[in-house]
Simulated assay, not measured.
Amino acid sequence: MKHSHLYIILAIFLLTTACSPKKGPYAVTNKVYSEQADAFAQTLLQTEPVVLTDSLGRKLASEWVGTVNFNLRKPNYVVIHYTAQDSAAQTLKTFTIAKTQVSAHYVIGGDGRIYHMLNDYLRAWHGGSGKWGNGTDVNSSSIGIELDNNGRSPFSDAQINSLIILLAHLKKTYNIPTANFIGHQDLAPTRKVDPGKYFPWKKLAEKGFGYWSNDVLELAPEGFDVATALRLIGYDTSNLNAAISAFKNHFIQADSSPVLSQLDLNVLYNVYQKY
């Protein structure tokens, strides 16, 4: 049957993107989600060849020949945020209103409950114009996870436990490298501060989600190039002070000033060698 392979993949895709709850407070938004997913599926079924013209306006010969070797794109990064709102319910509302233009794949409540809001293969709007390494469209390569936290208090044990279990699932499912678990401030150092100074990056690193400095630190060499080290880790150093503050919020968490003490330099030297 024509397109049989593609129809099978799309059928699986639609089954996984369809939200299971059909009733309740989000019945309307779940319906909109299913409709939008179906529209994307129809786009994938289009088999019209690309139409191109040369400098004289002459149409180039082209035809569609479908390959049998393909699959869905997969995420390669996980970006962790805090919601900066007062409750998970408030965040769910924010992410189900079109005018906010913001979303995430997962929201984790303070009680540890996980809200799966978008299929992992689809592109959420959580990273904005952030940059990490050479990637200037982080949304297209990442999964966004929002933690219900206002930024002024520690995260609950239940919340972090659920996060660690979810991260283990994502890492295994998509073969996400250890280095590719980052925070919102890491990729947007001039605009964001989340997940903030209370986030337990060391605990996550011990579980294999991101790196952390060793207990015994080697002294950073004389003339150690801070900007190069930060850039090799992934930071956008076009604003060096912001990049330093973001690094300190993630890997040191004692203060977020753009001034590096000797200990800070040692930590940076140790961390960058892991990348």
Rank of each mutant, 00 (worst) to 15 (best):
V216E: 08
L72V: 13
N180L: 01
P189W: 02
K22M: 09
I8R: 14
T16E: 14
Q90L: 06
P200S: 11
Q185N: 14
L232H: 13
E218T: 14
P49Q: 10
D225Q: 10
S257A: 15
D186G: 00
Q46S: 11
L260E: 09
L265V: 02
V138N: 03
A84V: 11
G127K: 00
V107A: 02
I244H: 07
K274T: 03
V65R: 11
A168M: 00
S140G: 09
S140M: 06
A104E: 04
C19S: 12
Y82V: 07
P195I: 03
S257K: 13
S140R: 12
T53Y: 12
I165M: 00
G24L: 04
P75N: 07
K192M: 11
T96E: 04
S153H: 15
N134H: 09
F224D: 06
N161E: 14
S256P: 05
C19D: 06
D186Y: 07
G24R: 03
T136N: 15
L15G: 10
Q185I: 07
A39Y: 02
L163I: 10
T53W: 08
M117P: 02
M1Q: 05
P75S: 11
T237Y: 02
F155T: 09
A254S: 14
V51G: 01
Y211N: 08
P25N: 05
N30S: 08
G151V: 11
N270F: 07
L44P: 01
T190R: 08
I160V: 14
D111R: 03
H116Y: 01
L118C: 03
F251D: 04
K207C: 14
T100E: 15
Y26P: 03
S257Q: 11
G183R: 06
A27K: 13
Y235M: 04
A39R: 02
L56T: 12
L167Y: 03
H169N: 13
I108P: 01
P154Y: 12
L263C: 00
L52A: 13
T29D: 07
G24K: 09
A242F: 14
T53L: 08
